[in-house]
């Protein structure tokens, strides 16, 4: 464990807590893409298949349970909670995410570390995570001004993967034979997708204005 990865995990945890806070406190999920939340639930379930077979550390196991539990709780809330579900922007959240699922799965069948169920699903979850934010970014674009909690959620989510890139650089420099090309390349793509959002987020923060994304 290094400081970059710890910072990344904590930032990721904050992004999930910000989202849970927004939904729980305001009993509203306006501006939040259910499709992105569902993709993230799939990312965590397919990535942590080794939850009960490989014990890395208590921290690792607890964090995996937190991420799986919170992502499923958010999806449940947005779909079935009688108050929250009414504020879901159903007509704006129309990204055809089957494409993302299909492409990621085909890519995982072709590019993986080992052709085993666990490794193929792990690669699938890495590829899917890189594009899982797209429905959310499209929804932010369509709903124009984002309320600041939705913007903060995306900001922390983008920052966490940027920290992980520093972590991979650090591990590559300090550990022999550290190779994680699938994660690195996918992480770079993921962070690049956030780049334009970061730019507009920074501008709005600097001008102390509400976030304006180009329509």
């Amino acid at each position: 464990m290094n400081i970059f990865r710890l910072a990344g995990d904590m930032t990721h945890l904050i992004s999930v807590l910000v989202l849970l806070l927004k939904i729980y406190a305001t009993k509203s999920c306006s501006g939040i893409s259910l499709k992105t939340q569902e993709l993230y639930a799939i990312v965590f379930v397919t990535r942590y298949l080794d939850l009960f077979t490989d014990f890395i550390s208590l921290y690792n196991t607890v964090m995996k349970l937190v991420f799986i539990g919170s992502s499923l709780a958010i999806v449940w809330c947005m779909r079935y909670h009688r108050v929250v579900r009414r504020s879901y922007d159903r007509e704006l959240d129309t990204f055809r995410y089957w494409i993302l699922l299909g492409v990621s799965f085909i890519l995982a069948l072709v590019l993986h570390e080992k052709f085993t169920l666990q490794e193929v699903f792990w690669a699938f979850s890495i590829y899917l995570e890189a594009v899982a934010i797209l429905p959310q970014l499209v929804l932010l674009q369509r709903s124009g001004n984002v309320d600041n909690l939705a913007g903060q959620y995306v900001f922390f989510l983008g920052a966490y993967r940027a920290f992980y890139i520093l972590n991979w650089i650090y591990r590559y420099l300090t550990e022999q034979r550290f190779t994680r090309w699938i994660s690195c390349v996918s992480g770079l793509v993921q962070t690049a997708l956030y780049a334009d959002f970061f730019y507009y987020y920074f501008i709005s923060w600097k001008n102390n204005a509400k976030l304006q994304l180009p329509a």
């Binding site: 995990d9 990721h12 890395i56 690792n60 080992k114």
Partner: peptide, 10 residues
């Protein structure tokens, strides 16, 4: 087959 890196990251 290439060694699979231990999945010690989240």
């Amino acid at each position: 087959s290439p060694v699979t890196t231990p999945k010690d990251e989240l």
